[in-house]
Write a protein that binds this DNA or RNA. Structure first.
Lengths: 217, 217
DNA sequence: CGCAAGATTTTTTTCGAAATATATGACATT
DNA sequence: AATGTCATATATTTCGAAAAAAATCTTGCG
């Protein structure tokens, strides 16, 4: 039994994915007529979708001039990385203070899945970037899951996706370094060592930022 | 020459205002048919508007069950206040470090306007809460305007409005205490004293939170 | 009386087309 | 050649109605 959502929700997912994973390049004009064919939805449904994406910041809307894929810039990337540090480190600290056994269990599971995937990537199999990034996402989410603030989690989700778009844009893999950072954050979190965990997470994000900035030349 | 925006943008403003200022109570079912009459817009336009408000968190959307005004709760208010402390204090610090003469000028102006309004309120004239809150908004915005992060400013804007809804909900005025806090934050910011400014802003937000929580019984 | 199956009404979701605005190109004027 | 105007084409915005889903009401049965 397959549960299909509304046309609206699936076009939302599709366009968002295409923006994040670069199938729709930054700055591209999103003409409704074209999108209609590409995503098989009506103009109204598309406008609804694009409005949502615009208020999350993946799309830019100009009054009576239509929609565009939000442009990228170094400044924007830096802002997003800094906000991720601020929010994610804060959430991590809360999570470490408040997390229970369920939190630990999910974290262990998420780290395990990510680790397996990363081992595969390191040994040269770069075939499934999307799954890899999904596991990365799930690991970072598992870390802060116990922060006990829905508002914080949802702000973080959007930020993470924006950051992810930049990573997908440069398309290069940071390799063993990032794997080690994940490992260190993971261990510090399980040991409930807030300061180390926080410092490692910050380092992880900042290193990722520098790497991406460097590739953007 | 009067510049009128699109129907969409004005219904967006109208509904958002009605949610924030309590004309649409928390939890209310937003039936499209009713909204159509109330706001004089078509179903598609309304859906577009409600989708935007949903992704900002002022409205809750349930798949195939329509839209509701986002409910309120103590937990949600506490989350929002804590996030405001985190983001606004951070932005204030950046602003104080980087603000130039323009920043100072705008800040002085914004504080002056707010101060005049507050004096009027203290002397018993509670007739124009909406203008008062607009000046409050503009003062807090002026404080962090020079933080040099559009992303941070737009996250803050949504957060501030959500906090504002709770303040409007309880409808009581904190009086001279809040006025003094504004004054102290203002002076510390102009003197470029980050630590004091930060501490006062945090106190201001936390006191406001406690006051609102107390009234929510 | 309670409860469930089916029919009716209401509401949400989706679409296509009309109305409005912007962009493009042809043509005349300086 | 540059600029401005007007007609044409293209795109966005808005609407009302059809299709799909959910909620409500009715009826029949144990």
């Amino acid at each position: 039994m397959k549960i299909v959502g509304t046309v609206g929700s699936s076009t939302y997912e599709a366009i968002k994915r295409d923006v994040i994973f670069g199938k729709l390049s930054p700055g591209t004009k999103l003409k409704l007529g074209h999108l209609k064919e590409r995503y098989q939805a009506s103009l109204s449904t598309l406008r609804e979708t694009l409005s949502r994406l615009a208020s999350e910041g993946f799309v830019a809307a100009e009054q009576q001039r239509g929609f565009f894929v939000t442009p990228v810039s170094k400044e924007d990337l830096i802002e997003i990385a800094n906000l991720r540090v601020l929010l994610e480190c804060h959430a991590l600290e809360l999570s470490i203070s408040q997390g229970d056994a369920d939190w630990e269990g999910n974290l262990v599971a998420a780290h395990h899945k990510l680790r397996r995937m990363e081992d595969k990537m390191i040994s040269g199999d770069l075939s499934d970037k999307e799954t890899w990034k999904r596991y990365d996402w799930e690991f970072h989410l598992a870390l802060i899951q116990a922060c006990n603030s829905q508002n914080l989690l949802s702000l973080h989700a959007v930020l993470f996706d924006k950051y992810l778009r930049y990573q997908m844009l440069v398309l290069t893999y940071r390799g063993k370094e990032a794997v080690d950072e994940h490992q260190q954050i993971f261990e510090a979190a399980l040991e409930r060592n807030k300061d180390i965990a926080r410092a490692m997470l910050k380092k992880h994000i900042v290193k990722g930022l520098e790497h991406t900035l460097a590739v953007m030349e």
